[in-house]
Design a protein around this nucleic acid. Structure first.
Length: 499
DNA sequence: CAATGTTTACTGGAAG
DNA sequence: CTTCCAGTAAACATTG
């Protein structure tokens, strides 16, 4: 098969797209108003995960505007598509259904199909994931909620994360987590109770989970668990981002971009590394990129997914000292936040690009926002008076990967810049924020690339990524790609940019 | 006593 | 081949 150039693919994609959505023909990329650009990334939602929350036809969740909520749900995007596992109602929802093909099927259950985003419906009729025409992977639908034979492709950390999110509570009990999992994943209803041991093990071992002692006046046994704000950004779309860190990474704290990554790293090292491998025991998310060859002896695990990983490196950002717990809780409790970047990350990741959310210092909020999902960055900004910023982006010529650091939220009132650069960053951010709500500062290239070079996650559109990677890309193209990302683009244009 | 929480050890797959 | 990672099992401690 002939090698297609990025433009070729972009054109093909465009043709396909227009065939399905002629209405999109209209606006030219350049004609789009800047304001639109703020929301233009919505396409990523679709691009990303799939679907909206089936359980919430209106997409309206408590505290969230319907439209925003829809976006949020999509962004939440637990790997699967349409369902709301993560965002879904605490109990009895279809969380387990409609998982992405790899994980399950996104469009699986009828319920979500309706809310399925365009990509799911059109471009990727089969599995609900964006796919390039060339790709043809048969969708495998698995309804985890009712299928007891297939082990969900989510790591325990992800499951915990989903349960926490679904609970809508800032903190949850172990039993709540168990319940959510069993209610949404049939497999666990029938599995040996040993999985609960694993859950506990994960909660204890994974630094991302923080135990909140029960108050004296709070009856009951055991404490509460919550996502440690410091690691909130480890969860992408409700899924744990997993990153493989090399030894140097731990030592790499370098300067530039740094401080944040340094911090984070050190924490990660201290935390997870001390216990297991050097990461806050992240394992969440869809785990491996390959199919679950492993049978576990009990059930076959669907291939892991997707969404996650891509942003593991976001984790490297440092966070400040200010207490974000409140912010986290805030977001978690329903006020929206932003998952926009998540999707972007995911999407870009799948396309060979990576976005990194840099939260240096103030980052917690960003991470939290992501985690909680809800609105988008903008929403969160409003809520917290944050400022987003974008600074620069760099391409790793060697890898030809595009790293885009997005999601840097600033919380001026709370922020306590530890470094002059941070203040500078703030100013810079304010300057740029008006133009790029969704894109944020690109982190230090060294951090972006050297730290998490292999953040590969099975994204729904993984195929696209692979294709894209196969396409010869010049450095210039790479830059163009990133550049294009920040500008208003039509879907096909964006794809072209990515390619 | 059961549920909860912590810790250690080991295994196998995946990635580098 | 080595390292990383997630999962599993199990021992043990704590708590209601």
């Amino acid at each position: 098969m002939p090698v297609l150039t990025s433009p070729d693919i972009a054109n093909k994609f465009k043709e396909k797209w227009l065939a399905v959505y002629p209405e999109d023909q209209v606006t030219g990329s350049d004609s789009a108003p800047m304001d639109d650009s703020l929301t233009s990334l919505h396409w990523l939602q679709n691009f990303s995960i799939l679907s909206a929350d089936p359980e919430r036809p209106n997409g309206a969740g408590p505290g969230c505007p319907s439209s925003q909520h829809q976006l949020f749900l999509k962004r939440l995007g637990f790997p699967r598509g349409g369902t709301d596992s993560p965002s879904s109602p605490p109990a009895g929802d279809t969380a387990a259904t409609g998982m992405p093909p790899y994980l399950g099927s996104p469009v699986t259950s009828g319920s979500d199909s309706t809310a399925a985003p365009r990509f799911a419906n059109c471009a990727h009729p089969g599995n609900g994931y964006p796919q390039i025409p060339i790709q043809a992977s048969p969708p495998v639908e698995v309804d985890y909620k009712t299928n007891p034979k297939v082990k969900p492709p989510y790591s325990y950390a992800s499951l915990i994360c989903m349960a926490m999110q679904a609970s809508k509570q800032p903190k949850v009990t172990l039993s709540t987590i168990y319940n959510w999992i069993t209610e949404n994943f049939c497999y666990y209803r029938h599995a040996e109770p040993s999985w609960q041991n694993s859950i506990r093990h994960n909660l204890s071992l994974n630094k991302c989970f923080k135990k909140v002692p029960r108050q004296k006046d709070e009856p009951g046994k055991g404490g509460f668990w919550q996502i440690d704000p410091q690691y909130a950004d480890m969860f992408v779309n409700g899924i744990f981002k997993r990153r493989r860190m090399s030894a140097n990474h731990y030592n790499s704290s370098s300067s530039s971009g740094g401080s944040s990554s340094t911090h984070r790293q050190s924490k990660l090292v201290q935390g997870y590394h001390s216990t297991q491998n050097g990461f806050p025991y992240q394992g969440v998310g869809v785990k491996r990129k390959h199919l679950p060859s492993k049978n576990n002896g009990k059930a076959m695990r669907a291939s892991e997914s997707p969404l996650l990983a891509t942003e593991a490196h976001k984790a490297d950002i440092l966070r400040g000292d200010f207490d974000l717990a409140s912010v986290f809780d805030d977001v978690l409790s329903g006020s929206c936040s932003t998952f926009e970047d998540l999707d972007i990350n995911t999407a870009l990741s799948s396309l060979g690009c990576e976005m990194e959310v840099s939260m240096q210092g103030r980052q917690h909020s960003a991470g939290l926002g992501r985690w909680c999902g809800g609105g988008d960055i903008i929403g969160q900004s409003q809520h917290l008076n944050h400022h987003q910023s974008y600074s620069y982006m760099e391409l790793n010529a060697a890898s030809m990967d595009c790293a885009v650091n997005i999601g840097e939220l600033h919380v001026p009132q709370q922020q306590h810049p530890q470094h002059p650069q941070q203040q500078q960053q703030l100013d810079q951010d304010q300057l740029l924020q008006s133009h790029h709500h969704h894109l944020q500062q690109f982190d230090d290239p060294s951090t972006l690339f050297s730290e998490q070079p292999d953040e590969v996650v099975l994204q729904p559109w993984e195929e696209i990524k692979e294709e894209a990677q196969a396409i010869p890309l010049t450095l210039d193209q790479g830059f163009g790609l990133c550049e294009g990302f920040f500008t208003e683009m039509q879907p096909w244009e964006r794809v072209e940019a990515y390619l």
